[in-house]
Design a binder for these strands. Structure first.
Length: 811
DNA sequence: GGCGTCTGGATTTTT
DNA sequence: TCCAGACGCC
């Protein structure tokens, strides 16, 4: 059932629709907009570039324009394609448009490039032919981890020295090829030296293995869609006929393949798709295009984004017009002046100066910390002050850093000082082992060719199908040129396979086939998932384990089941709603639909919105994650050369400019208060290193920053009060012992050293757990090595922990 | 086939 | 400092 997803409206789009005029009036749609914003909303005809500075109300312009198209220009909602950067942004935009023009907006396509391409490919991918071996529409989508596994297999296939050719580096190269729309043949043809030949060979094999697994990676989604349009003009015309209005947000972060896709739909010249143009195919006028972006916020060059797409827009699309939005509705003038000043150091940009009539506001506060712990204490102390004054809640505050690793210190210190926080990003839910395992099972049920998933769970939980058995089956698969899954089903033919392994394999095959029949019967995704976890023995294995982490794993799996249930009950809600298919009422959401949403959603559910629960909690995230968000109070931390800008960018002008844009993004997230800080000494993997201040600090106007402290205390452990600066909660001797990085990370060590001292606890005691945070002891059972405590960790729930292993400290 | 130990590599940023 | 993969022993 998941093999075909209909495109609602595709066939009926040209049918006459009774004009529905119960939407907002034109005045309402333009209310509260400034002149350039209005111009963008009502613009007709030629391709339009809206250069939208940070905080200049571009989301408003986008949503109002869509509403305008629908209600003033009578565009059919189904003829609108809007591309956003994240699924969350897509869901929000759709919701806002729906608020304006009502339910009929639901039929619009508002999604990321990747989601849109998946929808097209699910329908059309069988058209593409790869020498007779094509893809089926139930293809899997491989993320970074799957890709790495697959590339490792490729390295083995080709017998590549893993030290010279790392899977990660190969994948990066392959990704670049795909972003440039170059297939393995192109790469092979153009290889100039041995190294490139090897890379091209890896690309070829990698692509072959993907095809055998009926799987596409993220880059394939875009590249295949472009190739589809280029090679099959009639398919392209179908979509050109459908999408009369195309809107692209965050245009500065598009790569070449995405640019080409837009071009296919919106460019005038229809013949630039290559040699296969069929004059018989009816010509369709290009769609009306609007792109919105800000070259100063281009921060994804590392993954192939091409800033030239936005800089060259007017050349790429002849007779294009552009509109500049410079008035900022978010920040104080102080913050904007700082941002303008920093970004002004980039060369070759189009001048743009943000301004605000919100007044100057407070000065920026700066602090030079002794080390990263001191920096975190400073941040925590300032947040305390801000919230004590009553002007802000913790939920108004965000702490930004350059790399995920920096979050750790903040977490340690915040836990100790009782500062409530949440980390966005980092180890994501969907990257956890147990979640990946569960999803691998589900993917296998939908797409048995998916070898990466199959191999992942074949012996998970342990069921006695080891390397040797896999090798035997693999040999059979290669001998008879069948998929690995087919070979498993015919395992009795595999030479050299031990009887015991054979029995195990047959049991596994029976299990999978039984589960598959559930899927074929249209069973709900959550039911399939629960059954899978139970019948596979996965739950039992975790329940019986005495690794304390496995308790959390069980909870995570329960959470996944809950997500699936929510999806089955109401596919429209939830993080990445792009539910036009489901809205059409033609299909109940199946397992395939669930997997698709999960594959393309990032960590959208973590980003704070109006959830009241988030209002009492400080948000920690990387600068990249912060793009598109805003907070009343922002802490920009780790401003040190080598940290931010990142050490790998220091020697390269282009990369340095990207770092600077990242700084610009960070500064412009702040509405009212901005704090900047750096640490004189910072430990990078064990050894402390001494970093000079970030060059971006020198680019701030001196008079805008109120430096609370400009240098570290003389001696590391001397009392900084003496230096005239403020000081934040110097750790007590006990605190330092208990909360040193070593102690916090002693988890693994504790397990291998059973001699670890068992804390003596009583009900009512307050304790600190490495991962659950603060808790209260509820009950105790057993004694000595077998002592088990039930501890209430508040929002984390009540845990039963074996004290011998549990990383808890009595407070 | 499973499990423990050792070594080497990793840290940008993510759809 | 931590983690993953390789290797070797039970």
């Amino acid at each position: 059932m998941s093999t075909s997803i209909p495109l609602p409206g595709l066939e009926t789009i040209t049918a006459a629709e009774p004009p529905q005029r119960r939407g907002p009036s034109a005045e309402e749609l333009l209310a509260g907009l400034n002149d350039p914003q209005r111009a963008a909303v009502v613009h007709e005809g030629a391709p339009l570039l809206v250069v939208a500075g940070a905080g200049s109300g571009k989301t408003r312009v986008l949503t109002r324009r869509i509403a305008w198209l629908i209600s003033e220009r009578r565009a059919h909602p189904g003829s609108i394609l809007a591309i956003t950067f994240t699924n969350k942004a897509a869901a929000e935009m759709k919701e806002r448009v729906e608020d304006l023009v009502g339910k009929r907006a639901r039929i619009m396509w508002v999604s990321t490039f990747h989601s849109a391409c998946v929808r097209i490919l699910r329908k059309e991918v069988t058209t593409l032919d790869f020498g007779g071996v094509g893809f089926k529409s139930n293809f899997s989508i491989y993320d970074a981890a799957d890709q790495k596994r697959l590339m490792t297999l490729v390295c083995n296939d080709l017998d590549l020295d893993p030290r010279r050719y790392q899977p990660g580096a190969l994948l990066h190269w392959v990704s670049n090829q795909k972003n440039e729309l170059r297939d393995p043949e192109d790469a092979t043809k153009d290889a100039r030296n041995h190294l490139e030949e090897t890379y091209a060979a890896a690309y070829t094999t990698y692509q072959r293995r993907l095809r055998e697994a009926n799987a596409l990676d993220f880059d394939d989604l875009i590249m295949f869609t472009v190739h589809l349009f280029q090679q099959f003009p009639e398919v392209r015309e179908t979509y050109r006929r459908r999408f009369r209005h195309v809107l692209v947000d965050e245009y500065q972060d598009t790569n070449h393949a995405q640019y080409a896709l837009i071009h296919q739909l919106c460019a005038d010249a229809i013949s630039d798709g290559g040699p296969m143009v069929d004059p018989e195919v009816e010509r369709v006028e290009p769609a009306e295009l609007m792109v919105v972006g800000d070259a100063d916020q281009s921060i994804y060059a590392f993954r192939g984004a091409n800033i030239r797409n936005i800089l060259d827009f007017e050349q790429d699309f002849p007779n294009a017009t552009s509109i500049l939005l410079e008035q900022n509705y978010r920040s104080t003038q102080t913050i904007l002046t700082a941002a303008n000043s920093v970004i002004g150091h980039n060369k070759g940009r189009k001048e743009k100066r943000l301004w605000s009539d919100a007044g100057d506001g407070d000065r920026i506060v700066g602090y030079v910390a002794d080390d990263e712990h001191d920096e975190a204490r400073f941040v925590s102390g300032e947040i305390d002050k801000l919230t004590d004054e009553g002007r802000f809640r913790p939920g108004d505050v965000a702490v930004f850093y350059r790399t995920n690793a920096q979050s750790r210190v903040f977490e340690e210190v915040f836990i100790r000082l009782g500062m409530p926080y949440k980390v966005v990003g980092g180890v994501r839910f969907y990257e956890r082992r147990e979640i990946r395992d569960a999803l691998a099972y589900l993917r296998l049920l939908v797409n048995p060719a998916d070898q990466v998933s199959l191999r992942r769970i074949l012996n998970t939980p342990k069921r006695g199908i080891g390397d040797r058995a896999v090798a035997c089956v693999n040999a059979l698969a290669e001998r008879d040129r069948i998929t690995f899954w087919e070979a498993l089903r015919r395992a009795e033919d595999a030479p050299g396979l031990a009887t015991r392994s054979l029995t195990q394999i047959q049991g596994f095959v029976a299990l999978v086939e039984e589960l598959q029949s559930m899927v074929d019967g249209g069973e709900r995704p959550d039911v399939v998932l629960e059954t899978t976890l139970a019948r596979s023995g996965y739950l039992t294995a975790l329940e019986e384990s005495d690794d304390p982490q496995d308790e959390t794993r069980l909870e995570n799996l329960a959470e996944l089941v809950a997500v699936a249930r929510e999806f089955a009950d109401d596919p429209v809600a939830g993080p990445s709603a792009d539910p036009a298919d489901v809205d059409a009422g033609t299909v109940a959401p199946g397992l395939g639909d669930f997997l698709e949403r999960v594959a393309l959603v990032a960590d959208a559910d973590q980003i704070p919105d109006d959830d009241p629960e988030d209002q009492g909690v400080v948000t920690l995230m990387t600068l990249h994650t912060a793009k598109g968000l805003e907070f009343p109070v922002v802490f920009l931390t780790g401003l040190e050369d080598g940290v931010f800008p990142h050490s790998r960018a220091l020697g390269d002008q282009t990369e340095l400019e990207e770092e600077r844009r990242l700084a610009y993004v960070g500064v412009t997230r702040a509405r009212e208060r901005l704090f900047i800080s750096r640490a004189v000494v910072r430990s990078a993997w064990g050894a402390p290193s001494h970093n000079p201040g970030s060059r971006f600090l020198d680019e701030l106007p001196v008079d805008l920053v109120d430096w609370r402290r400009t240098e570290a205390a003389q001696t590391r452990w001397s009392r900084p009060d003496l230096s005239g600066g403020q000081h934040y909660g110097e750790p007590t001797a006990a605190g330092r012992r208990n909360f040193s990085a070593a102690a916090v990370r002693a988890d693994a060590a504790a397990r291998s050293k059973p001699s670890r001292e068992i804390p003596s606890l009583d009900p009512g005691d307050r304790v600190l757990h490495d991962s659950f945070g603060l808790g209260t002891v509820v009950a105790l059972e057993g004694a000595g090595d077998k002592a088990v405590a039930s501890i209430d960790f508040g929002s984390e729930g009540v845990k039963r922990l074996l004290l011998r292993y549990a990383p808890v400290e009595k407070l």
